[in-house]
Simulated scan of single mutants.
Amino acid sequence: MTSDRIPEGVGRTAIGVARARARESARPDRLFEDPYAAAFVAAAPDGPPTVPRTEVSPARVALARHLVIRTRFFDDYLTAATRAGCTQVVVPAAGLDTRAFRLDWPAGTRVFELDTPAVLGFKERVLAEQGAQAPVPRTTLAVDLREDWAGSLVEAGFDPAARTVWLVEGLLVYLGPDEAAAVLGTIDSLSAPGSRLALTHGFNSKEQRRAGTSQVVEGIEWGPDLAPVVALWRGGLDEDPVGWLNRRGWRAEWHDRAELAVGYGRPADYVTSQRILVTAER
């Protein structure tokens, strides 16, 4: 029987992401609105505790702001990709993502969300309690991304011949180099011409991986409030993802999050200038 409680480890970090999205959604100048994020937080009383603002570390603030910018950027990217002809949206390690419900999808779009049974069980319970209804067909698939999941995705109705946009958000850092390469390799094998891909890449050197530091909050010391999250990081892809993708026939590029923030109307020092968001087109 599938549990409806948020699991320990990586699954629980999804509550932290939901909290950041809920706080942004409550701002009058919000960059996006996630109507279900607060419900996820409220439904997980054993999730990450709320930290008084006076005790929030600079690293936690930086990470939350990063989550805001990447959420808005990927919202725009997915919407543009589907309007340009990608009829399938696939989100490996979807966590508590609610884009299937809150974005304006073109008719004919189909969304696939992949994650562990425990995460999906919790997510579906909360969404059902909220009466959430996706405007387009949505398929959830319980898989282990460290194993062979391509066949399960196809069996669930995914069409490898159709143009697809993939979102690999906040996943690779929790995988080892070989596992991260395997996930991207599977995506590569399932992507028809015209497909698109967006991902986050938070490490840029072997030294950073060994030290447990990250581009996400470069130059800021981790506080004890984020130690449980940092302990889960395994480094991700062991090379430049843009080069990795380009060698396989993609046209990939980096995006600087500080430039994005300014474009969204946030102050120039809202986030540090780091190229950790990647998009690619086949």
Rank of each mutant, 00 (worst) to 15 (best):
E113H: 01
L103D: 09
F74Y: 12
D76R: 13
V56P: 04
A258L: 09
L232D: 01
S273P: 04
P177N: 08
L103N: 08
A81G: 09
T82Y: 01
L103T: 05
L96Y: 00
G95Y: 00
L145F: 07
V230G: 01
F122K: 02
A38P: 07
A38D: 14
A180Q: 08
G223I: 06
R27C: 14
G249K: 00
F203W: 01
V91G: 04
A37E: 12
G85V: 08
E55W: 03
A181M: 07
A81W: 03
S191F: 00
W244A: 03
G176Y: 02
A192W: 02
F122Y: 10
G131T: 07
I220A: 10
E33F: 13
G202P: 01
Y270F: 15
S57V: 09
V154P: 03
A62W: 08
Q130I: 00
R23N: 14
W222A: 15
V119P: 01
R27Q: 15
P106H: 00
R72C: 11
M1D: 15
V183L: 13
N246A: 09
A80S: 13
A94E: 02
L167S: 14
S214G: 11
G108F: 00
Y270R: 11
R70L: 03
E169P: 04
E259I: 12
Y77H: 15
G212D: 04
L175I: 06
Q215S: 15
D34H: 03
Q208W: 01
H201N: 10
Q274G: 13
T87D: 10
R210Q: 14
G11K: 02
I187V: 15
V278C: 09
G176V: 09
A162V: 10
T54V: 14
R138G: 08
P228S: 06
A100R: 04
A252L: 05
L114R: 02
A161G: 14
R196W: 03
N204S: 15
T82P: 04
V165L: 05
T279E: 14
L245N: 01
T87L: 07
A180V: 06
P160K: 08
G265I: 13
P137M: 03
